[in-house]
């Protein structure tokens, strides 16, 4: 059995893995698990990943979780072009610096607006207004740091070429953009960076990977999103309660 990737393209780290594998022509079996249908909490998938999280990689007997670990594994195993994860000490350190900050300061807050605007109403739950406001402020603060500290005067976040850091960051920004967040407005440097990354990836691949999330508001309005079954509600409520 070859490489299998368990993904849902509504999830930002899943899209990063998908785009990386496609762009680098890594052959893989796509195993779509729809989070909204609770397919990740099934018994079969729990045997593959007891944490019931996506993305998950299965390469023969070797099972690996966590998007960053998966990206590094793929870049090493398939010897992808050096610019993604250069071996030069300082550039590689910049990538890890970004990914560390991303894990602490981006992951927890950039995903929240999709929950607040689409997923929370889908199961009839609520998020206190205070948290919504705090989330907005946190996002603005983080975007500022992204521009000033990480992008600075560089073409990309960690070097003059595209790296894993750009891919991870782009997908978080797309998640916000998809739910109507005007994040590129008034941030020309960030908008230009997005354009550079997307141009590098290619319009077709971006369209393919971003299509589902960019349609999410329309789907929510037309009521064509899957209605999460009751067994997935506890996991969703747990996630909602963790919105900082």
């Amino acid at each position: 059995m070859g490489l299998e990737l368990y993904l849902d393209l509504l999830s930002q780290p899943c899209r990063a893995v998908y785009i990386f594998a496609k762009k680098n022509r890594i052959p893989f079996e796509l195993r779509i698990l729809e989070l909204l249908k609770g397919q990740h909490i099934s018994k079969e998938f729990s045997q593959i990943n007891s944490l019931q999280k996506l993305p998950t990689l299965k390469d023969g007997d070797f099972i690996l979780t966590e998007s960053v670990a998966i990206l590094i594994y793929l870049s090493s195993k398939y010897q992808t072009e050096a610019h993604w994860y250069p071996s030069e000490l300082h550039v590689r350190s910049r990538i890890h610096e970004y990914l560390g900050w991303h894990a602490d300061c981006i992951r927890s807050i950039f995903g929240a607006p999709l929950w607040i605007r689409v997923l929370v109403p889908l199961i009839g739950a609520q998020v206190p207004e205070e948290k919504v406001e705090r989330n907005k402020a946190a996002i603005n603060g983080a975007l500022q740091k992204l521009e000033d500290k990480f992008l600075g005067c560089r073409a990309f976040l960690a070097s003059q070429e595209v790296t894993l850091a750009d891919l991870m960051a782009l997908e978080e920004l797309i998640q916000l953009f998809a739910v109507g967040y005007d994040l590129f407005e008034g941030r020309p440097r960030l908008a230009a960076w997005r354009k550079r990354v997307e141009t590098f990836l290619g319009a077709e691949l971006c369209q393919e990977a971003h299509g589902p999330i960019l349609n999410i508001l329309e789907q929510a309005a037309n009521k064509t999103l899957p209605v999460p079954p009751p067994e997935v509600h506890p996991t969703m409520l747990n996630r909602i309660s963790r919105i900082p």
């Binding site: 070797f62 690996l64 979780t65 966590e66 998007s67 960053v68 670990a69 590094i72 594994y73 090493s76 195993k77 000490l89 590689r92 990914l99 560390g100 894990a103 602490d104 992951r107 927890s108």
Partner: peptide, 29 residues
Amino acid sequence: RKFQTAAHWYPADLQARARVDEFLAWQHA
């Protein structure tokens, strides 16, 4: 890397290194 510490801290083997990367990514949250 800079001080070339013993390999067990961050192994060179592909799968072992992936396990360390996986844990380091997971532990944040």
